[in-house]
């Protein structure tokens, strides 16, 4: 479980996040949603420590990460896996070396153990026989899968995904979403997914935090999102005519 407590962040005096608190549950895919530029990525970066929040703290299973010393921080970081918006594969390494990288730097496993684990993870995300391909030689969807494999290779307790399906077709998106959900449940980890894709919201949104201009306006599950009564959220959810017509007619899913 990850808990965030009154997080605020401003850039050059311009507030981006204002006093955001909440919890992300273990064994669930927790979503952070909101329209472009509302601070979702900034919030995620504050949680994983790529950005230092101006105020507030982040707790990983009751361990205060924000105020932790260097050793404690790297210990908690070893338990994290992250899938970046653009996959962020190392272009100088092939698929196998990319997935193996966290094991190389964080563990003392032998090469055989590492190879076993890498192949297991690649198989888990549905990729086989691509070990020696370079990132530039595989498609966007495959990159995301390699990114997921790299994120889970060291058995993380916390998995973070920034827009796992941006730039993918709806079908591949669903496959990736399902994969994230399955992995979360299978290993009982805490997963936080940033997205603005309504398909993901309805597909895997067990717990959803809605951000609007740096504020947290709503929290709930996809069962409740249609009837939140929050105008800004309705504007986000019911974007097109078809959806607008649905509004009010749907009571529960």
């Amino acid at each position: 479980m990850i808990k965030i407590n009154r997080i605020s962040k401003a850039f050059n005096g311009k507030p981006v996040l204002d006093n955001i608190s909440g919890e992300f549950d273990k064994g669930k895919t927790n979503l952070i949603i909101g329209s472009s530029g509302t601070g979702k990525s900034v919030l995620l970066k504050c949680i994983v420590g790529l950005l230092q929040p101006d105020q507030g703290s982040v707790y990983f299973d009751l361990r205060n990460f924000t105020e932790a010393d260097k050793d404690m921080k790297s210990e908690i970081r070893r338990e994290m896996g992250m899938l970046f918006q653009g996959s962020a594969l190392f272009d100088s390494k092939n698929v196998e070396q990319n997935v193996m990288f966290p094991l190389d730097v964080l563990t003392t496993k032998t090469l055989e153990e590492k190879l076993d684990r890498v192949n297991f993870c690649l198989k888990r995300v549905g990729l086989e026989n691509v070990n020696s391909k370079m990132p530039s030689e595989i498609s966007g969807g495959m990159k995301k899968r390699v990114g997921i494999a790299r994120a889970i290779v060291n058995n993380p307790n916390y998995l973070f995904c920034d827009e796992p399906n941006s730039g993918l077709d709806p079908q591949t998106s669903i496959v990736i979403d399902e994969l994230i959900k399955e992995i979360t449940e299978e290993y009982d980890i805490t997963t936080v997914v940033v997205t603005h894709d309504m398909n993901s919201v309805m597909g895997i949104g067990e717990k959803i935090m809605f951000l609007y201009k740096g504020h947290k306006l709503w929290e709930g599950s996809y069962h409740e999102i249609m009837n939140s009564g929050v105008k800004e959220l309705d504007d986000f959810v019911f974007t097109n005519k078809v959806m607008k017509n649905l509004k009010g007619k749907v009571t529960s899913l």
Binding site: F84, L89, F101
Partner: peptide
């Protein structure tokens, strides 16, 4: 620069490097 803008540097940082 390419590693920075494609978040590869962030990826290293998240791993605690």
């Amino acid at each position: 620069g390419t590693m920075r803008i494609t978040e590869q540097i962030d990826a290293l940082e998240v791993m605690g490097i």
